[in-house]
Design a protein around this nucleic acid. Structure first.
Lengths: 149, 149
DNA sequence: TGATTTTAGTTAAGTGCTTAACCAAATGGG
DNA sequence: CCCATTTGGTTAAGCACTTAACTAAAATCA
């Protein structure tokens, strides 16, 4: 047993400690959200696709979608196929460019969001609201600084 | 297109916005750390096992290990086998309880940490240090409040 | 204009985790 | 005691993602 090494792993300098706490805290909160979706027989990645489509007015290309939600090109393909089969999105050919396809959220897809998003956000917000508005603004400012770097 | 729904997904209330920013920021930072390990032909989960062993004095049961690093019981089994084959840990039978096995980090395992941990922490800290010590303490306090809830 | 390169998307193979099912050893209440 | 239950660990099957390989269409340019 190397005692110096044990010391090293045990007493963490501030930046390292903050990083680990960031990771653990986020994991817990993400779990709240994902558990909600799972209980509905859904999952976060599928929902993020539908949400992103709504943000952009209902219609997007798969590649843009993949980039926005931070997933690989092959994976977006695999995610879209079941969404299409379940009627939550439509996949149409691009009118001018034969390589592209155009993804559109259907009414069913929109209904799914309307019926599930508010309760999900409610559950997450309940956890976030251990912090008051002032603290949330502080947190947001710090995170944005970190994120840009 | 349901315009009310589009409004709903576009303008996020403060707690929801803070949550999303938390998730995105953490993902970016985790990526810094994971990329480092990947470049060394390693990965975070394997390293966390070795680190956790060091914290506890070099020796632990698989079940405790699984719990500490937040992974399932079957997965710890799967992770330990290659670590054992590579000589980074040892798996011994528990002297009194025939069900248990005792995991011990080897000298090789300790050497691996000594040679890689500092550079990894250095890279992560470089990103975290966009915040000064005062700000890091603030962040840490906010995160701890969130994490307990 | 026709050959070469780039872009969009899918399919195939592989990785890292999960849940479910299982085995063996230990525990605990009649 | 001894049988039912619990506990620790592994094995098997499945899921969500990745990287690599491929196909087809469009863009570039000599």
């Amino acid at each position: 047993m190397n005692d110096d090494l044990q010391q090293y792993v045990l007493d963490l300098p501030l930046p390292t400690l903050a990083f680990f706490t960031l990771v653990e805290t986020t994991a817990k909160l993400v779990d709240v959200s994902e558990s909600y979706w799972k209980a509905q027989g859904l999952n976060g990645a599928r929902i993020r696709i539908l949400v992103e489509l709504m943000k952009e007015g209902g219609t997007m290309l798969p590649s843009k979608l993949a980039q926005q939600i931070g997933v690989t090109k092959p994976n977006i393909s695999l995610l879209l196929t079941p969404l299409e089969n379940e009627g939550l999105i439509r996949r149409d050919n691009h009118p001018r460019d034969g390589r592209k396809s155009v993804i559109t959220i259907t009414n069913e897809g929109q209904h799914l969001l309307i019926h599930n998003l508010p309760a999900n956000r409610q559950q997450v917000s309940a956890k976030m609201n251990v912090l008051n508005d002032e603290e949330l603004k502080q947190l947001l400012a710090l995170l944005r600084k970190l994120k840009e770097a």
